[in-house]
Design a protein around this nucleic acid. Sequence first.
DNA 1: CTCAGTCGTTAAAACGTTTCAACATCGAGG
DNA 2: CCTCGATGTTGAAACGTTTTAACGACTGAG
Lengths: 335, 335
Amino acid sequence: MKPSVGIRDVAQHAGVSNATVSNVLNRPDVVAPATRQRVLAAIEELGFVRNESARQLRAGRSRVIAYVVLDAANPFFTDVARGVEDAAREAGFALFLCNSASDDTREREYLELLHEQRVEGILITPVDGEAARFAERGTPVVLVDRESVDGTHCSVAVDDVLGGELAVTHLIENGHTRIAMVGGPLSIQQVRDRYEGAMRALANAGLPKSALTLLETKGLQVAEGKGAGERLVGLPSSRRPTAAFCANDLLALGLLQSMTQQGLKVPDDLAVVGYDDIDFAAAAAVPLTSVRQPRDQLGRTAAALLLSENEPDHEHRHVKFQPELVVRASSAVKR
Amino acid sequence: MKPSVGIRDVAQHAGVSNATVSNVLNRPDVVAPATRQRVLAAIEELGFVRNESARQLRAGRSRVIAYVVLDAANPFFTDVARGVEDAAREAGFALFLCNSASDDTREREYLELLHEQRVEGILITPVDGEAARFAERGTPVVLVDRESVDGTHCSVAVDDVLGGELAVTHLIENGHTRIAMVGGPLSIQQVRDRYEGAMRALANAGLPKSALTLLETKGLQVAEGKGAGERLVGLPSSRRPTAAFCANDLLALGLLQSMTQQGLKVPDDLAVVGYDDIDFAAAAAVPLTSVRQPRDQLGRTAAALLLSENEPDHEHRHVKFQPELVVRASSAVKR
DNA sequence: CTCAGTCGTTAAAACGTTTCAACATCGAGG
DNA sequence: CCTCGATGTTGAAACGTTTTAACGACTGAG
């Protein structure tokens, strides 16, 4: 089945030594044009495909970086991945995408595998802090959308505390004083930070902490948002929040859907603010107010940092971008 | 920087031969419990990580399959990927995701790379037919969401012609006689098939071919859908279609957005039917009628076929699923 | 007390590349 | 005519595993 034609076969077929074939492959300029042509012809004819394992074993290098993503179904991450890939390609690297799906076992397995594969570097949006430490075993690691706790990695993040603050300040300015924060689990740092930002907004406005109720979810997917919506509607309307700040847009979309299904109006009965400003947010049932993050730039910068990691005088850097509030109909002021 | 501790170091540290260490790694049952413990301890202590390149070089196997996806930003594909990953994991394989982003150069590069990596198998939703043939060079390949032209691969697909027929029949039954088909480029087979299905629906209903106008787009992303919307609105209302069938949900969402922005009502001014029934379709501005495909099953089946590929008496199979129309508000009948 | 059979371990040979030092060949400069 | 440097090419030694056949030490049966 596998003809398994190696460099030696090519060499023999072209009447040269295997070293020359290798040179044609890696340093074409060093070999005489005529010979080069002959070798290339032989490669073509025999359908030779370089065995990357062998190359890597000997050469140590691998031309591949990987991005372990928290949730491949979340457009936010695929957009970041797109940025990563573009930057990687420009530098001659290929990108392997791995989906941890918010599962730390899965994440660990992928990290182990990537490590064994000796990829040149790993980008990761980690499920938990543990994993980041686990990753640090020889392979350069850059944290994406998460700040490095200790200083052992580069990281590229967005100021999530500020993002949360922007969102909730906006709601407060629109007159809301009973606000729900939807998101979880709190073990995810983004969620914690956005929550903290929300609390800060309250403090700035001189509102009591009780003005914000946390509706903790088990994950950050659409379905969880729906569930939160049902819980919200279950509350007696006197105590029910008039606004919800969701830890990401998927939750917000789920919440939206659930509201519509249960006959409540957004923003009249409940104002909603999401996070990430994914493309679908603008196309939602009620166009979604959301906190925008520079997704593409996040990815590109992360890749750039990773690739700079094996420069001689590398120092770990922590880049932090600013989020931006995009106001749409879902949080329009009550009339 | 890299300590690069190898199997030999472990062996020495544990006072055994490297063969024994290898046995501990690969056939733990064959080595005496006491020795095994000692070796494991040494591995732990030295922080040994098996070098996958070397293993693969010698063993020939690789424990990795890859899915080259047409558009990682399209939730349809990430859902399929999820199915693939689950099935792969159950079989002890890891999944690398590669995004061709509808770019045949990119696709080719990834295929080349995966081939060099000697992955155990490749799943692909190809950009063009060429690529599928290119892929066939020793590594098993299964086509996903696309039928194999020649019989050289397994394939898992959904009956796109039927899907198109379902969608347009539905529109015709709702009284529409001027229908637009939005999608492209026609070089993508899914688009062609869905178009063919649409034509068939016309024929079934005894409508002339002119009842369907093709609005060809350059891609299948949200932005293209918006563009198509603008083109549609530009038409004089006497000739403007009253319904649109979009080749996928991203286009439909873009179209929807564009309608709203230009002050037209869906479904009153324009009924819209999408394709794929991604999760966001139900949460859209106007919940989207769409043609549902069994995404998860598509992925799982594809993975299963791929893994069965190196069984001794393998024959290429072509699995075809049935799509299903999900009716929502975007195509509600005019009142 | 011997012999066959287990069991656990090992030395050494792969696997298919890259790389390094050495080797021809040739033209030019002395 | 000899030497030197440049230019192309090559043989052989890695790289870090897995694998195979062989080994010695025991055990239990005869």
